[in-house]
Simulated assay, not measured.
Amino acid sequence: MEHAPPPRSGARPVTTTRSSFTAGFSPAAGAGSSLLAYDREFLRTAPGGLMLAEIVLGLLVWTLIAGTEYFLYPAFGWVMFVAVFYWVLTVFFLIIYMTMTYTRIPQVPWTTVGLCFNGSAFVLYLIAAIVDASSVTNELNSHNYNSWAASSFFAFLVTFCYAGNAYFSFISWRSRTSQ
């Protein structure tokens, strides 16, 4: 039989509880109950469709550049950074919106976060698209030229998509802050 050491003076007892987080995911919990919701209608909204277009077109931007010797040209490194960074974050936000995770974290001002994200994506993608277009050179390797020209075109398309989402985010933010 073990003896606990005597309590220190001024020490408060600590109470712990144990919970089972995975219980809600078990098949025995029922087919209709799920901890993660799925919003089937989100992709049918304008912001959802624009977000899907941002993912597809953004993927085209960085894969077209990644298939070339872009590392020899610092300007394309900037374009790659912007394209990959915002592509990853857009996928992340799509998952948050599709699973309705934002409803479980009400402490986060999601309308402000969306406005800042889409606004910064618009500005930085616009700069990256301009840098991309101005860096396209017709060199001996026509593969690089074609890929860079195509990536520039898609970068401007993604820029317009982020501008549209920034507009919808602003409308949502303004309606939330006026309440």
Rank of each mutant, 00 (worst) to 15 (best):
R12L: 10
I127Y: 09
S135A: 15
A121D: 11
G77V: 10
R176F: 06
L89H: 14
A29D: 06
A150K: 07
L57E: 02
E69L: 02
V91C: 15
F71W: 12
F25I: 05
G119I: 01
W78K: 09
N144Q: 13
Y86V: 01
F154P: 08
I105W: 04
V82W: 08
L157K: 04
A4K: 12
A75C: 05
W87G: 00
S147D: 14
M98C: 05
G67R: 10
N146F: 11
P6K: 12
Y97D: 10
R44W: 02
N138V: 09
G10N: 13
M100P: 00
C116P: 00
Y102R: 08
N138E: 09
G119N: 08
Q107M: 09
Y162D: 06
W110D: 06
V14P: 00
A75R: 12
D132P: 00
P6R: 14
H143E: 06
W78P: 00
G119A: 03
T16F: 08
G114R: 04
W110C: 02
R176D: 13
S19K: 04
A83C: 00
A28M: 04
A53Y: 11
P109N: 08
D132W: 00
W148C: 07
T16A: 11
I95F: 09
F153S: 04
V88N: 09
F81Q: 04
L52F: 05
R44E: 11
S26L: 15
G58Y: 08
L157C: 15
A83M: 03
Y125V: 01
A28G: 07
H3F: 11
I95C: 08
S120V: 05
V123E: 05
V131F: 02
F122W: 14
L36T: 02
G30P: 02
A11E: 13
R12N: 11
V14Y: 02
N165T: 03
N146E: 11
I65G: 03
R40H: 11
Y38M: 03
F76N: 06
V123I: 15
L52E: 06
S169C: 04
S178V: 07
F25Q: 13
L50F: 06
N165G: 04
P106F: 01
A4H: 14
L94G: 10
I105L: 15
A128M: 08
E41A: 10
T137S: 13
I96T: 14
Y162R: 04
V88S: 08
A150D: 06
F154D: 03
F71N: 12
F85A: 15
Y38C: 03
Y86F: 15
N141C: 03
T45P: 01
H3Q: 09
S120H: 05
G10L: 09
L89Q: 13
P27Y: 02
T15M: 05
C161R: 05
Y38I: 02
A28Y: 04
L50N: 10
T17Q: 08
M51D: 04
I55H: 03
W173N: 09
F117P: 04
F117S: 05
T45Y: 01
V131S: 03
A128R: 03
L64I: 05
T101V: 14
E54N: 10
C161D: 09
V82A: 10
A133Y: 02
M51W: 01
